[in-house]
Simulated scan of single mutants.
Amino acid sequence: MTLPVLFGANVDPSHADPTAPLRAAERIERAGLDLVTIQDHPYRPGFYDTWTLLTYLAARTNRVTFVPTVANLPLRPPAVLAKSAASLDVLTGGRLRLGLGAGAFWDQIVAMGGPRRAGLDRIRALDEAIDVIRALWSDARSVRAGGEFYRVRDVEPGPRPGGELAIWLGANGPRMLDLLGAKADGWQPSLLHLGLDDLPAASARVDAAAERAGRVPGSIRKVYNITGLVGPESPRPFRGSAAQWVDQLAVLVGRHGMNGFVFWPESDFDRQVERFAAEVVPAARAALT
């Protein structure tokens, strides 16, 4: 199974300029990209609430798909998150994918009333959350799911989301990658946290976990978040010319099974998104067909 390669760009949730996120999302859609991602850090005073922002942006756009990258599970209970995601998916005609993370920045999470989790507890809680979310997306009359960290009993699901709503995990560690391969629909690693030297082994681990679970590895969406610039030729990955970008993306697709890329421009957002969409993406799509 081969998924089509998707391209997108990240929108900063900063409210320093209140209208900047909308302008950015509109620019991404006009440029013909597939995805808008928005990071989720509710404890940062300079950021809008991500769920509110992506809902607003989805209502002001028509085609592009939105992804929190990734929703902060310790501060967003999975039963309510499932309801929110299903609702937005239906309202937008299927333009949502649920990026989900186990949590980080624990001091800030605790300061906002969330739990502090470490080690296996982070993974076990995420595992239970996936079960709760999937149960509440089902067409069952009532559901029970979860366990130690999250538990729902005799809850009536609804609304029923469309078939494209999926759970994408932000995961780097080996146990998280195993969970992803076994139970999730997509993966959102980042160049800043999982570099090019470590990406091949991590991708292979996801595939191996999928195979052990009886799943088709090629059915998993693998979206690499790339911080960089499109400009003159450079020896540094993803800071060079459009032709260099195309060659580097082709390697990630052909050798390592990546099938999506989200651009995080280091500077000059508007111009960089335009160059990425006009110079990199069409050439990459042509090279990958």
Rank of each mutant, 00 (worst) to 15 (best):
Y43E: 09
L73M: 10
L57G: 02
T37H: 09
P68L: 13
F66W: 10
T55P: 04
T37Y: 08
Y56W: 07
W51T: 01
E26N: 04
T61L: 07
R23Q: 13
N62W: 05
E26D: 04
T19L: 15
Q39I: 08
V64D: 03
N62M: 06
L53R: 03
V64N: 03
L33D: 04
P42Y: 05
T50G: 02
T55Y: 07
R63V: 10
Y43A: 13
L53P: 01
F47S: 06
Y43G: 09
T69S: 14
A25R: 10
L35C: 14
Y43T: 09
I38E: 02
V67G: 05
A20S: 02
Q39K: 07
I38D: 00
G32R: 10
E26F: 04
P68F: 11
R60S: 07
E29C: 12
R63T: 01
P45H: 13
A58D: 04
Y48C: 11
L22E: 10
A58S: 12
A24Q: 11
Q39V: 09
V67W: 00
Y43M: 13
E26I: 04
R27P: 09
A20M: 00
Y48Q: 10
N72Q: 14
P21M: 02
H41T: 09
V36M: 15
T19W: 15
V70Y: 00
P68I: 13
L54P: 00
P68Y: 08
N62G: 09
H41S: 11
T61Q: 06
T65Q: 08
F66E: 01
T55R: 07
F47A: 07
D34P: 09
L53M: 06
R63A: 11
E26T: 08
V67T: 05
Y48P: 04
A59P: 01
A71T: 00
A58R: 07
T55N: 06
N72I: 10
T65K: 07
W51Q: 02
P68A: 06
T65V: 10
A24H: 12
